[in-house]
Nucleic acid binder design. Structure first.
Lengths: 249, 249
DNA sequence: CGCACTTATGGTCGCATCAACCATAACTGT
DNA sequence: ACAGTTATGGTTGATGCGACCATAAGTGCG
């Protein structure tokens, strides 16, 4: 399982210094479930790191774009149809030594989705499951490769995206109440928001949400209006979170 | 110049679908000069696209990180020491067919620097020069590969970064006046800003800039206080530009 | 020197926005 | 009818911002 057997003939004049690499995608897929931010993990079914949790991903095939590869791996490893998720490139990790098999370049994708069906294991992964990000952040759950570092960067990106874009709607279903949307912010930012002020800010931001005219009847309490996401992606003004006291830089 | 001669033995079970790829970095390096936003380009000295302008870049060597490769190419192709620039990953481009030689994966880096010394050509590039981004945007200047698309995304990123981060200070030298900083915003956003209000916003944003106590004597007019960049990178509140009327999305 | 010119810096005022808070509406179950 | 619960709407005091004006501190020139 090492890249032996590979020869590069006369590829470049200075080719001693340049070698082939293998291209993979990894997906950081988040959802909000049970008032917790969850990330999709698989238990690896191959060496290296056999049996260890990892983000879903795998090799990009010859005639695929990166996005196509990401969607295929998502379907294969977790049985999830990603065509309705928000999928976005996060960054590329290529440090020599990050993969014991050689120069493996991985492009990390960020995906946000509503509370998705319980994932099922596929071919390369024996098991797929949702894990609370808190368990990874505090080290209770170890990940293969450099996936913990990737996840940390993905989390920062998600938290920032909530401020400046309508990304929060990607965590909700087709239609949602403002309380649903507010819950997303509260869970991801870990702080309470005033329902009344939240409502005013969201409705005053043109193109953020769009009323459907329908209502949702909760088990108890007043019925809530339903909305769907608007056409705007960038929010201005942004929905800033209150600066947690003691934060620097 | 095609990836012939490459054999992959027993690499994966489904290895017919997976092949090796070649890893490159490309750099979108911006500076402000003569009240214009400029991008560093080189004239290609190799096929394909021989003689055509392109962003500097090249193959990543076997034991390099991406960042190291980017810095090396910058030095080789343009004679610029990038260790004092702000360098940041922008995105990865890997569509099959983007490079006629085969699967070439390029990681685009974004770099911002103060008015830099006139670049000199290196080994792979016959000539390096600063070009106004306007000339590329309006199509007067064509670029090799998919570099025009990469540049377009880099520009969007730069404009957004000015709002939410202290990136503008990266365009200034070690010390600068508030007018220098304001000029950066005006050039990149293409709109005039009120000196007085700009001053108030910058100085009220904690950690954005830091007074040196020194002064700068302009050829005419009152002396201006000099500042250096503060320790903050994320600005809050952000320095929003006025929404240009008629913008949608 | 006195003066025009130029640029930096500082202040004022009216308007919009926001967070904290209170009030009301509309449903459920007892 | 009434308490409990959740959604929605309004008020208010403080803050921030844009447009605009005023002053400070240099230069060069007669």
């Amino acid at each position: 399982m090492r890249p032996l057997g590979v020869r590069v003939d006369d590829w470049l004049k200075d080719s001693d210094e340049v070698g082939p690499s293998w291209l993979t995608v990894d997906l950081a897929i988040f959802t909000v479930r049970d008032d917790q931010l969850m990330v999709l993990l698989v238990e690896r079914g191959l060496e290296p790191f056999y049996g260890m949790p990892a983000m879903p991903g795998g090799y990009v095939q010859k005639n695929e774009t990166l996005r196509e590869g990401a969607l295929r791996e998502l379907a294969e490893e977790a049985g999830i149809d990603g065509s309705r998720l928000h999928l976005e490139q996060l960054g590329t990790y290529a440090d020599p030594g990050r993969d014991p098999r050689g120069r493996v370049v991985t492009v990390a994708y960020l995906a946000l989705g509503p509370d998705l069906p319980a994932p099922v294991g596929g071919t390369d992964a024996t098991r797929a499951f949702w894990a609370p990000v808190a368990h990874v952040e505090d080290g209770r759950l170890g990940l293969a490769f450099d996936h913990r570092a990737i996840l940390t960067e993905a989390l920062e990106e998600v938290r920032r995206k909530l401020e400046y874009t309508a990304a929060a709607t990607a965590f909700c279903g087709e239609t949602f109440t403002l309380t649903d949307l507010r819950t997303v912010y509260q869970v991801i930012w870990g702080q309470q928001l005033d329902p009344s002020n939240f409502r005013r800010k969201v409705l005053n931001t043109t193109g953020f949400v769009q009323p459907t005219g329908e209502q949702w009847l909760p088990p108890t309490g007043r019925p809530a209006a339903l909305y769907r996401r608007g056409q705007a992606w960038l929010l201005n003004p942004p929905l800033m979170r209150a600066e947690t006291p003691g934060q620097q830089s």
